[in-house]
Design a protein around this nucleic acid. Structure first.
Length: 482
RNA sequence: UCCUCAGUAGCUCAGUUGGUUAGAGCACCUGACUGUUAAUCAGGGAGUCGUCAGUUCAAGUCUGACCUGAGGAGCCA
């Protein structure tokens, strides 16, 4: 018999009523009394379980004993309206096959609340929990929404290299890629490692950004985006950093900083709306769970808004747009600054915004997402468009509540001379960047782009608090298990 | 990398000013129960108290180092 997915039964059960169908899935719980056993089965197609009802006298006792949490079953039975109140339909089982047993003494998942820390230690099994089922279904939908958004706007997806020979990307520490024998690497006459004998004939690393390559494509195809894995070898131990994460980097010719902001805001709204329209069940589950977790917390740590309400809020309210200088003035005159509550006082123009400052702007002052532009030149990357004031560049950070920086971008410097002098000033080796500079030599145009951290977006959408829980296999310092 | 906190049964946690044989709930096993909803009720088994060293008549409890995890900071997306 052809398998019917539980999602179909839950959503379109009416048309299957009275029919015999086959269901396959994993046991979440089993409850039994003298005459009848109830099995909650989940196949991951939807957050809900399907209740299987087995008349004990029709089944072998030994077989029923093996239906434990975690076991996989194939069930043939008739779909009927449930006599219980918690579900509309249930299966009256005619035939139950145990496809794979799960020894209850050894299977680590129980039908109860587990800590996220524990689930990270059993990341190979955590897909089988409600939370990670929901998160990963949403994750797929968000990936799809990103591609759909850009496709609909006429952007082209570009695969930029994962292994890069350029160390001028400047976005952080890199992972070396090599096939040299680490115990006995070839040396040159100066006793240094001789990378001419390495696989690519030069030192190579995993990419920290596809931006520079995406710019090349944008200056021909007009509007492009990348969506690929990104690697940072920073020793970052926080709930919002990963060593391996996925980044979306649109890059657009003929866009200035304002067009850039418009696009970023439109994209974020599109993704949020897609989640609300297509992931309702999973969001409702996560929302309920988050509210329960909140009740355990002291009042000042609780979330100000319920999850779905929060997503709708972003949908309905324009993001605040301010310059660094305006942000500086707000912070300088803020209560916490005057009362010396900031660990980093804001009294000198030019200092970078610290986490506490970003949080104040987003969570206390504006109470909504904030876009900050026109940062002091000295705290931003070499490729950002220099303003006429000689002090600031057209950088852009999008700040979200509780997550902080979710997007970093800028209008790019298209003027060869200005870009070149910045490269020289910062002593970036020209030999690594000649191809990038070439785009400003030939047919240079105004252009812009940004990077969206996909997992940070996932934190916002799902309401999860640790980035290690919105990617199936997190890579962090000292941890590459699974 | 820095600061703070934590590590006790498979899981979540309690364990008083150091003092006999370390506890609870869930899970598991046995039994009861005419349809349950993380079922319920009764009983049972289950522990190198993160590791190593030290202080002490005596250490889960005090001290030090190390390991692991979490939170905050920095780096950033």
């Amino acid at each position: 018999m052809k398998r019917t997915k539980i999602k179909e039964v839950i959503q379109e059960g009416e048309k299957l009523l009275g029919k015999e169908i086959n269901i396959k899935g994993w046991v979440r719980t089993r409850r039994s009394s003298k005459n009848v056993s109830f099995i909650n089965l989940n196949d991951g197609s939807i957050i809900y379980n399907l209740q299987i009802v087995a008349d004990n006298q029709n089944f072998d006792d030994e077989m029923l004993q093996k239906i434990n949490t975690g076991a996989s079953l194939s069930v043939n039975g008739t779909l009927v309206e449930s006599k219980g109140s918690k579900q509309n339909y249930e299966i009256e089982a005619n035939d139950i096959e145990i496809m794979g047993e799960a020894d209850p003494e050894k299977y680590p998942l129980q039908p109860k609340k587990h800590s996220y820390e524990f689930l990270r230690e059993i990341a190979h099994l955590r897909f089988r929990t409600n939370t990670f089922g929901a998160v990963n279904r949403i994750r797929h939908n968000m990936i799809f929404a990103v591609h759909q958004f850009f496709h609909n706007k006429g952007f082209f997806n570009i695969h930029t290299p994962i292994i890069t020979g350029s160390d001028a990307e400047g976005a952080g520490e890199m992972f070396r890629v090599t096939t040299l024998d680490l115990k006995n690497p070839p040396k040159d006459e100066n006793g240094e490692i001789d990378f001419s004998e390495d696989f690519f004939g030069k030192p190579t690393n995993l990419t920290v950004s596809g931006q520079l390559e995406a710019e090349l494509a944008a200056l021909a195809l007009s509007e492009v985006y990348t969506f690929g894995p990104t690697f940072r070898a920073e020793n970052s131990n926080t709930k919002r950093h990963l060593a391996e994460f996925w980044m979306i980097e649109p890059e657009m010719a003929f866009y200035d900083i304002n067009d850039n902001m418009d696009l970023a805001e439109e994209m974020l709204r599109y993704i949020v709306k897609f989640a609300l329209d297509n992931c309702r069940d999973d969001l409702e589950f996560l929302s309920k769970q988050r509210q329960e977790e909140d009740r355990q917390k002291p009042a000042n740590e609780r979330e100000p808004m319920e999850l779905i309400e929060k997503l709708n809020f972003v949908l309905e309210n324009k993001f605040e747009r301010i310059t660094y200088t305006e942000a500086f003035e707000i912070l300088k005159n803020s209560k916490p600054n005057k009362k010396k509550k900031f660990a980093f006082p804001m009294d000198e123009w030019g200092a970078d915004l610290q986490s506490e400052h970003e949080r104040f702007l987003v969570e206390k002052h504006f109470k909504k997402p904030v876009m900050v532009t026109d940062y002091p030149r000295d705290i931003k990357a070499f490729y950002m468009k220099q303003n006429d004031d000689g002090k600031t560049v057209r950088g852009l950070d999008v700040l979200f509540p509780s997550i902080g920086e979710i997007i970093g971008g800028s209008q790019r410097e298209e003027d060869f001379d200005k870009l070149y002098s910045r490269v020289k000033e910062l002593q970036i080796p020209e030999k690594d960047l000649w191809w990038f500079l070439d785009t400003r030599r030939f047919g240079s145009v105004v252009h812009s782009g940004y990077g969206l951290g996909f997992e940070r977006m996932m934190l916002f959408i799902t309401g999860m608090s640790n980035i290690r829980d919105v990617i199936p296999f997190p890579r962090t310092p000292q941890n590459a298990a699974f």
